[in-house]
């Protein structure tokens, strides 16, 4: 690796409060404390933010060591943009309820698809156990 200008690096993001999106669709917000060459991350004072439509709820989670390959992106939360986003915080129980009903719906659809495939002689592959919901 080089120190050439124009080189993307996470070093400048250290100690910043960042928003992390994981491959399974989770959104985490925490202070980035350390990184390595695989983009493994250590997040401090992390919260998991659950979004349903324009509402969100936060769950405090503490320290995360995240394996780099599960990270989709890291973003800096901009306070201006956040104010204009129309996102509103809601009690976490409400948000979790909404999320649960959405997930039940999705599960039903997936089951129907699987059934249709099975009827045509196709079996779900082992890769399906690793779900990437986004």
């Amino acid at each position: 690796m080089s120190y050439l200008p124009g080189t993307a690096s996470l070093i400048n993001e250290i100690d910043k409060r960042l928003l992390i999106v994981l491959r399974d669709g989770r959104t985490l917000i925490g202070y980035l404390r350390t990184i390595d060459q695989f983009a493994n991350l250590v997040l401090h004072q992390t919260i998991e933010r659950i979004h349903v439509d324009k509402q969100y709820g936060d769950i405090p989670r503490g320290i995360f060591i995240i394996r780099g390959e599960n990270v989709i992106l890291l973003g800096e939360v901009d306070d201006e943009k956040f104010k204009n986003s129309g996102l509103e915080e809601a009690p976490i129980d409400e948000v979790l309820e909404k999320q649960r009903s959405l997930q039940l719906q999705k599960q039903k659809e997936i089951e129907e698809k699987r059934k249709a495939l099975r009827e045509r002689g196709l079996e779900p592959s082992h890769l399906e156990s690793i779900q990437e919901d986004f």
Binding site: L22, D24, R33, H44, R61, G62, I63, F64, I65, I66, R67, N70
Partner: peptide
Amino acid sequence: RGSTIKYLRIPDEII
């Protein structure tokens, strides 16, 4: 096996 891990959560006192 490390390659199957998504993440680890550790106690705050470790920091």
